[in-house]
C-alpha cells in the first residue's frame, strides 16, 4: 500500500518538479553478485556514487555468489516496497518466479552487466557491455596505429569456453581478418590470470625467435597483459615500443604500465552500469518512457595520451 502511495506521490509531484528533485527520494534496491574481482568492487562503488549523486536511497545487498541470496534480497526489496531494483544476476536461469513477483508489485527491474534466460517482459531493460565490440575496438586501434606495415600478432585468450573469451576473440579476429597485412601467429589461453599470461607469453617469445617476429600482443584482459609485459621485459624486450600491446578491461595496473610506457592501449569495460540504468529508470518513472531492451555501454579506448597515471589513481579509489 505504502509503495503505491509513494509511487503516486512521486509521480504526482514529479510532474511539477525538476528531474533531480523528482529523483530525490527514490528508493532503489541493488543486488550485487559479490566482490570476486576488482572490477566487481569498482562496479559496486560506482553504483553507490551514482546513487548519491542523484540523491537515490540505495539499498545494497551482497549475494556472495549465491543465487538464493539474490532471490532473498529481491523478495526483501519487494516487501520493503522499493521504487526499483538493480540486479547483477549470478546465473542466467531460475529468475522467472521472483521477477514475476516484482512485476506484480509494480517494481521495475534493471539487469546489470549480465543477461538472463527469462521472458523479456519480466524486466525493464538490461545494461551490459558488448564483448564483441570490445574486441573490435581493440583491433581497430591496432589497425589505425600500425597502418599498412606487416604485423604479426600473438593473442592471449581467456578461459577456454567462457563467453568473454569467445566474444572478445571473435570481435578482434573478425576485424583483423579484413586487413591482409596482419596475421595472428599464435593464440593460447592464459586463463585470465597474470601468472598464466606471463607463462604463455614466455612460450610465445621462445617460439617466435626471441620475440623479434612479434609486432603486437592482444590479451583478452588486462591481468594477462600485465603478466605478458613482465615476460617481455624479462626477455629483454621493450613492450610498448618494440611490441605493441592492447588489452581489455581498463584496470589500474594497466594504466600504471601505460604511464611507464610499457603498455599502449586498453578498452574499458566500464564499471558504470548504474549510470545508464538510473537514467532509464528516472525517465521511465517520470513519464513512462520505456527504454530500449538492451542498453549497451560504451567501450571506450584509453591510450598513453589519456593521462594514464591519473586514471590509475582515480580507479584505485574505486576499489579495483
Amino acid at each position: 500500500m505504502k509503495t503505491f502511495k509513494k509511487l503516486a506521490l512521486a509521480a504526482g509531484i514529479g510532474a511539477l518538479l525538476s528531474t533531480t528533485a523528482m529523483a530525490d527520494g527514490l528508493v532503489v534496491g541493488f543486488s550485487q553478485i559479490g566482490s570476486e574481482s576488482g572490477w566487481r568492487a569498482a562496479e559496486t562503488s560506482v553504483t553507490k556514487q551514482e546513487a548519491e549523486k542523484r540523491g537515490v536511497d540505495l539499498k545494497f545487498a551482497d549475494a556472495q555468489q549465491k543465487q538464493e541470496n539474490q532471490i532473498k534480497a529481491l523478495r526483501g526489496f519487494i516487501a520493503q516496497g522499493v521504487d526499483a531494483i538493480l540486479i547483477a544476476p549470478v546465473v542466467a536461469t531460475g529468475w522467472d518466479e521472483v521477477l514475476g513477483e516484482a512485476k506484480d508489485a509494480g517494481i521495475p527491474v534493471v539487469l546489470l552487466d549480465r543477461g538472463i534466460d527469462a521472458s523479456q517482459d519480466l524486466y525493464l531493460t538490461s545494461v551490459a557491455s558488448d564483448q564483441v565490440k570490445e574486441g573490435a575496438v581493440a583491433a581497430q586501434w591496432l589497425v589505425d596505429t600500425v597502418g599498412d606495415k606487416p604485423c604479426t600478432i600473438v593473442e592471449l585468450e581467456g578461459t577456454v569456453g567462457s563467453s568473454p573469451a569467445i566474444n572478445r576473440k571473435k570481435g578482434f579476429d573478425d576485424t583483423i581478418a579484413a586487413h591482409a597485412n596482419f596475421t595472428i601467429s599464435r593464440s593460447q589461453t592464459g586463463e585470465f590470470t597474470r601468472s598464466k599470461g606471463k607463462e604463455v607469453m614466455e612460450g610465445f617469445i621462445k617460439a617466435e625467435d626471441g620475440g623479434k617476429n612479434i609486432c603486437a600482443v592482444y590479451a583478452h584482459n588486462d591481468d594477462m597483459m600485465v603478466g605478458a609485459i613482465q615476460a617481455m621485459k624479462d626477455a629483454g624486450l621493450k613492450p610498448g615500443t618494440d611490441i605493441l600491446t592492447v588489452s581489455i578491461d581498463a584496470v589500474p595496473d594497466i594504466f600504471s604500465a601505460m604511464a611507464a610506457g610499457d603498455a599502449n592501449a586498453t578498452v574499458e569495460l566500464t564499471p558504470n552500469m548504474a549510470g545508464p540504468a538510473f537514467d532509464a529508470l528516472e525517465a521511465f518513472l517520470k513519464d513512462g518512457t520505456v527504454p530500449e531492451k538492451f542498453i549497451i555501454t560504451e567501450s571506450k579506448l584509453y591510450t598513453q595520451a589519456d593521462d594514464p597515471a591519473g586514471e590509475a589513481e582515480r580507479r584505485k579509489s574505486l576499489g579495483y
Binding site: F192, T193, R194, S195, D223, V226, G227, Q230
Partner: peptide, 16 residues
C-alpha cells in the same frame, strides 16, 4: 615465488 614472479598477489588465482 608465484607472487614475486607476477609482482602481485592474486588471491583468486594464485595456486589454483
Amino acid at each position: 615465488i608465484v607472487a614475486a614472479d607476477i609482482h602481485g598477489a592474486d588471491a583468486n588465482n594464485a595456486g589454483l
